[in-house]
Design a protein around this nucleic acid. Sequence first.
RNA 1: GCGCCCGUAGCUCAGCUGGAUAGAGCGACGGCCUCCGGAGCCGUAGGUCAGGGGUUCGAAUCCCUUCGGGCGCACCA
Length: 615
Amino acid sequence: MKALSPESIVGEALESVYREVAAAIAAASRGALEPEQVVLVPAPAHTGCDLAFQCFKLARAWRQAPPAIAAEMATRLAAPEGDLLASAEAAGPYLNLRLDRDAVAARVLAATAAAGDEYGHSRRQQGEVVMMEYVSPNTNKPLHLGHLRNAVLGRAVIRLIAAQGARTYTSDIINDRGIHIAKSMVAYQRWGEGKTPQEAGIKGDHFVGRLYVRFSRALDDERRAWLERQGIDPSTLDERARKKVEERFQQASELMGEARDLLRRWEDEDPEVRALWRRMNRWVYDGFEETYRKLGITFDKHYYESEIYQGGKEIILEALEKGIFERAPNGAVVAPLSKHFKLQDKTVLRADGTGLYVTQDINLAAIKFRDFGLTRSIYCIGSEQDYYMKQLFAILKLLGFPWAEGLHHLSYGMVYLPEGKMKSREGRVVDADDLIAGMSELAEEALRERHGELDDEERERRALAIALAAMTFHFLVVGRDTEIHFDPASSLAFEGKTGPYLQYATARVASILRKAGDWQPPVSPVLHDDLEWRLVFALLLFPTVVADAADSLDPSRLANHLVDLAQSFSTFYHDLPVLAAEEPLRASRLALVQAVGQTLKNGLRLLGIEPLEVM
RNA sequence: GCGCCCGUAGCUCAGCUGGAUAGAGCGACGGCCUCCGGAGCCGUAGGUCAGGGGUUCGAAUCCCUUCGGGCGCACCA
């Protein structure tokens, strides 16, 4: 469990508790510690205590063994001042502390009630302006499983940051130009029969995606025939030779020739080609938009590669003049990263003067800071780009941009299907729309079993919320770096450590409160039971956990804490009566239930999961 | 060859700046619907934290190393 120290804790209630306890510990430390140097940890359950102070750090100052220190401090704290610290006892090298649980509960319940939907938020990042770039799909295929993890992670992180008081924006960079688009366009010209997605009855992004696949298959056929004509058997060649053969084929290919021709005409702004391009992109964007709407993913700004890919050259040429970048013998411009960082040099401009992907990224980074006055810019991109992102950030630092320190790569592990890494060209993907639809169907079945009386509309609404909760939580509960081997059976589960389990807890809270009738929150709550204390303590830590998740860009910290909270709550309401309890216990427990509900709701919203009042 | 990430229970994963008996979920086995909604609760079994060195009063956690897996290392995007 996390250690509590002044720099790590967030939240009024916890801060006030810490301040009082730390003052008492410091007072008992023979002047060895200032209050703000006191580190406290939650005491393990078997001790029956609430917090612990570890005496190892005092061993040097006191020139005594930790157990002796603990014993003496326990004596000194025998009659603690203040109303919070109830008792202190030595246990080996540990000084275990009991708190006045009612007093702590009073502070937590007051804090949650006062803050409401804002409980867990802070102003630690007030003044910061942060942008999250995420999802960033290509326009030649629909969103897949990998995009879902990306979207869900990026959304949670930016919400966590917003909850720290920062102003936040979301963006994506849409790869809407290049040879891949030209391929889809060739396919449409050849086989599209002039139909629109509506006429074909297919969602726009899927419509275009199919054309892309169609092109790839046709190209495969063409390659087979060509190899046969050439009398080449690639399986007999080594990798280098195969690459050479592939290059020759690409040059000889009729289909690739058409695609290259279209790309050239696109570059020359041929009106006819541009019109088709715009038309097909619109279909794709409409399709994406539909998926985003379902997921609740939004963007403040779309950046289009077609609009920025030619920029960035001025920045680079200027840096070349200043001697920051170097000219390679053949004329290409190179960022000499190996001189300044433990990275390999990176070409930033081709010998023929045209830009590369990184050229555009340099440009876009600057545009974002300029457009929005950012202090920080986060890129939610898979871990396969770790090295590239390091290079990009190093280049921007080399260029001397003052904002370069505000760049962050929000990296995450790959998503694999049972058969291996997803490859869209081979069709081995789990399509985002299919997945959502499939999970909604499962959730609907479950709802039909439980609530046969629901009308279709309400059932569908709940089913979607539950399905998205399951999917979202599944991606967020594991650490960022953890690779996800997507297994439908566990990924689609609604029971156990899942999103729907958390939604169920919020629904149970709502249900209890609905039946409570009129009640007044207690002035001084009476909550001594261990089951109650676990909840109080989890609520007390919540703002700190949120802050930690935000700072580490890792929502899994919050997700796991919510599971702890929900599990503790389940045990609590199973074992202890709320509505049937005697006053003043009843009001105290109701206030606790309300605080738990508020906290679960706030936590789920930060993760991008819809809490449910009924399910 | 070089760099980064990872290896914890049968499976999927937590375990955060080193601290008390390493935790959850699933699966297995056994209980719990006269009681605030069973998408729930309780219990049992199950781990030399991949192996080996080292640092430390103390290592799943830090360092080195071996083995095993993943991803990168373009004038591609």
